[in-house]
């Protein structure tokens, strides 16, 4: 369940501005500034709390009167208990009840931050590490990367993310260790997740180099017999998963080169995730720990 938290929680720093019944606050995450206006303090507090959790505690409160935020959201309640969600300059949409509204807000916040993050590049990928090298598993939503990441964690890998590889210009991958998004009753927009500790694993806290990139998709009964790609061919395979590619291609390509050009890049179909996790562990012990 998405925890709504208690209504006492407030944006740290107490930088909130009241405009009539509305409350406005702003924060920055991964260099992206966001302002949020809600039509009640209670809703404002809940929005900040879920935003901060979605950004893994990296939301830094800023003063909305001093900074013009890059992205502005307005949330207001209707008499029937549903909400209107507005992304200023883009669209307004009805978003259902409180839970749906918070989930929509979190999803859109993640999209904005992953597209416009400063000084880092978000790639759609699962990430684990063995030894001191990370394994990057790029893939779209529903491609099975969470399943594979979860199996790797069960086999002893350190957990970085099941959704985003956050790459910095020095070529390192940083943890984005949210709760794993393992399907829960098929609920489409759920932010429900399973903490990595539940799987007996641990979350990484420090960035590491990428040792390998695994480009794979599940095919029942398939045996993992990957081909090894050149760095250039590996990078163009990762480009479709690189979120800011169409926004800042120059920076994205520089960062991909820095992060991936020394990695071993493997491409092939896989059978069961647990089998591949075992093979990757053995591969890592042989190839990445030297």
């Amino acid at each position: 369940m998405l925890e709504l938290g208690n209504s006492e929680a407030q944006p740290s720093g107490e930088v909130r501005f009241f405009e009539g019944d509305n409350v406005k606050f702003a924060f920055e995450a991964y260099g992206v500034s966001v302002s949020v206006t809600a039509d009640s303090a209670d809703l404002g507090n809940k929005l900040f709390e879920v935003a901060n959790r979605a950004m893994l505690g990296k939301c830094k409160v800023i003063d909305p009167s001093l900074v013009k935020a890059e992205h502005e959201f307005l949330l207001s309640s209707r008499k029937d208990g549903t909400y209107d969600f507005t992304s200023v300059g883009e669209y307004t949409t009805g978003s259902g009840g409180l839970r749906e509204t918070l989930e929509l807000f979190v999803r859109i916040l993640r999209i904005k931050v992953s597209q416009f993050a400063k000084n880092c590049v978000f790639v759609h990928a699962g990430v684990v590490s063995w030894g001191k090298k990370a394994i990057l598993i790029p893939g779209n939503s529903g491609s099975g990367k969470t399943t594979l990441v979860a199996e790797c964690v069960k086999h002893g890998a350190l957990y970085f993310s099941d959704e985003y590889a956050v790459l910095s210009p020095d070529g390192l991958v940083h943890p984005f260790a949210r709760a794993l998004s393992i399907t829960n009753g098929g609920r489409k927009w759920s932010e429900d997740g399973i903490p990595v500790e539940t799987l007996g694993g641990r979350a990484a806290t420090e960035p590491v180099e990428i040792g390998a990139v695994v480009l794979t998709r599940h095919e029942p009964g398939a045996k993992w017999q990957p081909e090894r790609l050149t760095p250039g061919n590996g990078i163009i395979e990762v480009i479709p998963h690189t979120i800011p590619m169409t926004i800042d291609a120059d920076f994205s390509l520089q960062v991909l080169k820095s992060a991936i050009s020394r990695a071993i890049i493997l491409k092939g179909v896989r059978g069961e995730a647990s089998d591949l996790a075992e093979e990757l562990l053995s591969f890592s012990n042989k190839e990445l720990t030297a």
Binding site: G94, S95, I108, I111, Q115, S141, W189, I236, I239, P240
Partner: peptide, 29 residues
């Protein structure tokens, strides 16, 4: 020369189909 097309946005990994139940959320996301 090996080539691959990047989608307009890497977030664009689903089709532009939506359901009545979720109103416009499928689209704006």
């Amino acid at each position: 020369v090996a080539s691959l097309v990047a989608p307009k946005s890497a977030m664009a990994n689903t089709s532009c189909q939506c359901t009545v139940a979720t109103e416009t959320q499928d689209c704006v996301l």
